[in-house]
């Protein structure tokens, strides 16, 4: 079964304590939010990183999406705070 790579950035990365993890693909119909609920049970760091959903942003295969978006056929999910470049 194909996998899903999850990338973490900024304080999301710091709270989880790693910048990347690979999981079995949760299925095209699963939303990012549903996956977060599942991952939050994995460690206190995951729970802390995903506690405040209003401050969390996501990208599927390098495109911004809302947290209620189904993961579909994406191979890469990135989770991070609102961007602060420029």
């Amino acid at each position: 079964m194909a996998g899903l790579t999850i990338l973490y950035f900024a304080w999301v990365r710091e709270r989880i304590g790693r910048d990347e993890q690979r999981i079995d693909h949760p299925g095209a119909e699963t939303s990012i939010a549903a996956l977060l609920d599942r991952l939050a049970a994995e460690s206190p760091g995951h729970a802390a990183a995903f506690a405040d959903r209003a401050r969390l942003r996501a990208a599927l295969d390098q495109r911004f999406v809302l947290l209620d978006t189904p993961i579909g056929e994406a191979r890469e999910l990135a989770l991070f705070p609102p961007v602060t470049g420029g």
């Binding site: 950035f9 900024a10 911004f64 470049g85 420029g86």
Partner: peptide, 27 residues
């Protein structure tokens, strides 16, 4: 270009202060 770079380019800034502390900049 600069207005859109600020909100859509995936960069995150962390402050490093002289007293050794630091925080992630809020959008």
């Amino acid at each position: 270009l600069i207005d859109w770079l600020k909100v859509s380019a995936p960069f995150w800034k962390r402050t490093l202060r002289r007293d050794g502390s630091g925080t992630w900049v809020e959008a």
